[in-house]
Amino acid sequence: MTDLEHRYPGPGTEPYGPPSGSLADLLERVLDKGIVIAGDIKIDLLDIELLTIRLRLFIASVDTAKKAGIDWWETDPALSSRAARDALAEENARLRERLDALEGAAGETTGAVR
């Protein structure tokens, strides 16, 4: 495609931003930092009191964004607490399974030795 969504205004010309700019472009910009917040990593909020609000808020909006097709952080444990939870749960289940198997094997071995 060769379309440019802008009018090449001269320096100093207002207003900013394509008025009919795509929602995806806008969300990318206004939520960009939100994604970092959802990531739970570099939280540096203007107001610590509202930390939980913003944290959950952006996780919520991340879900919404995901419905719109912006889904890359869902599978990245570092960026998604839910994905992190899933990954942990999965690992936990795997470890339990292994432990059960090992315990079973150990029981059999002791039984056999005796």
């Binding site: 495609m1 060769t2 379309d3 969504e5 802008h6 900013y16 931003g17 700019g21 910009r29």
Partner: peptide, 11 residues
Amino acid sequence: RVEASGPWIPY
């Protein structure tokens, strides 16, 4: 294909 939009406030 190249698409562009701007100028944006530098979010």
